[in-house]
Design a protein around this nucleic acid. Sequence first.
DNA 1: TCCAGGATGTTCT
DNA 2: GAACATCCTGGAC
Length: 190
Amino acid sequence: MKPLPRSFYQRDPAVVAKDLLGKVLVHRCADGLTSGRIVETEAYFGKGDPASRASKRRTKLNELMWWRGGHAFVYMVHNSWMFNVTADREEVPGAVLLRALEPLEGIELMKFRRGFEDEKLLTSGPGRLSKAMGITYDHHKIDMTKPGHLTILAAGPADFKTSRSNRIGVSKDLKRKLRFYIEGNRFVSR
DNA sequence: TCCAGGATGTTCT
DNA sequence: GAACATCCTGGAC
């Protein structure tokens, strides 16, 4: 399996969010290797999207939203790291939030990092999956299209049904349904 | 140096 | 399903 190419990410965030379902997030570090199948995502846009970091003016904090697709965008909220991948072309703000994974490899390491034994609770939430995968602000700005410590790999054919809903936890959402998840998967956060 | 913000998690009922 | 604990970052001053 190879890392997803730049062209995959340089599309509309909603399309990228939908197509990321079923792909495999891999993180290699000194502690070991962890990986998981992506089962839940959300798309964020720029201007006109009140829930997006990029709806306000460009700052050091949110500038990744304007970068070309394929970079890791990490943000701290309520004591939890949010892991996003930038989408769309350079100067067009967009990102996809990873909300839930199905653990594949390094499950023992995930349990250790989370302090939990229950597999369902390891990665079913944006803050939870970051902690289980060992993702922190250190990974901010990483180019995920290059082979390295943190990448997303293409996977086999999509043998699942995709469903969508409104985004979760945002104070002001758009009318569009921008949350995508694999229907019936037990690791989806809600 | 201070302070508000914020796309959550956990626990309790 | 609701309450509340928790904390890093950057912008404001």
